[in-house]
Simulated scan of single mutants.
Amino acid sequence: MKKQFKKILVIKMRFHGDMLLTTPVISSLKHQYPDAEIDVLLYQDTLPILSENSEINALYGMANKKSSGVSKACNFIKLLLTLRKNKYDLVVNLADQWMVSLLVRAIPAETKISHQFGHRDSKYWRNSFTHLTVPEGEHVVLNNLSVLKPLELKELKTNLTMSYTADDWKNIDQRLLDLGVHSSYVVIQPTARQIFKCWDDEKFSEVIDALQSRGYQVVLTSGPSKEDLECVNNIANGCQTKPVIELAGKTTFPELGALIAHAALFIGVDSAPMHIAAAVNTPIVCLFGATNHIFWRPWTDHAVQFWAGDYETMPPRDELDRNKKYLSIIPASDVIKATEKLLPMNIRSMMTRY
Rank of each mutant, 00 (worst) to 15 (best):
S222R: 11
R175N: 13
D270N: 06
D201N: 15
I267D: 00
L103G: 04
N281M: 06
N234G: 09
H131E: 09
K324S: 13
I208G: 11
L132C: 05
N75T: 00
D167E: 15
P48A: 10
Y43V: 04
Q305T: 14
L94D: 05
H16T: 11
L20N: 07
A264C: 11
L287E: 03
S71G: 09
T251C: 15
V218L: 07
D270W: 02
E110C: 04
D35E: 15
F295L: 12
M345V: 14
V232F: 07
I336Y: 07
V147Y: 05
T282G: 04
N292G: 02
F76M: 12
P243L: 03
K2M: 08
V10Y: 05
K250E: 12
K87Q: 15
N64G: 08
P190D: 00
A279F: 06
V285Y: 02
H139F: 11
D167G: 10
P254K: 11
Y124F: 15
F76A: 12
V207G: 00
S27R: 09
K87V: 07
S101W: 04
T339H: 04
M351C: 11
N143H: 14
C286R: 00
L80W: 10
I284C: 00
L287Q: 02
I330K: 02
W307C: 11
T352D: 09
N323I: 10
S163C: 07
W125H: 11
S333R: 11
S101H: 01
V147Q: 05
R126T: 11
S222P: 03
D270R: 08
N143K: 12
S349V: 13
I329W: 06
S333F: 10
T291S: 10
K157Y: 03
M351T: 04
L9Q: 07
S71P: 03
P135M: 10
K6A: 15
V280R: 01
A272P: 01
I294L: 13
T291K: 05
T313Y: 09
R105F: 06
F76N: 04
T165P: 03
T165A: 07
L102P: 05
M351V: 09
P283C: 00
H262W: 08
L247E: 10
K85W: 01
L20D: 06
M345P: 04
L247R: 05
I245H: 06
C286I: 04
F306E: 07
A277S: 01
N57T: 10
G180H: 02
F15C: 14
S205V: 00
Q240H: 06
K197S: 02
M13Q: 15
T191G: 09
E55A: 12
T165E: 08
N86S: 15
A272K: 03
H31A: 08
W98A: 10
P135R: 00
I276H: 01
L220Q: 05
V207K: 06
E152W: 01
H275I: 03
V232L: 02
L29W: 02
Y311S: 09
I172T: 14
I294C: 08
V70T: 15
L142S: 13
V10E: 03
Q97V: 10
C231E: 11
D310G: 12
Q212T: 01
D96P: 09
F266Y: 14
L342E: 03
S333A: 15
D121V: 04
T111R: 06
G17Y: 05
S328L: 02
F117E: 09
I235M: 07
T23Q: 03
S163N: 14
L29Y: 03
P298G: 01
C286N: 08
S184Y: 14
K157M: 11
D173S: 15
K7D: 11
R175T: 12
I330W: 06
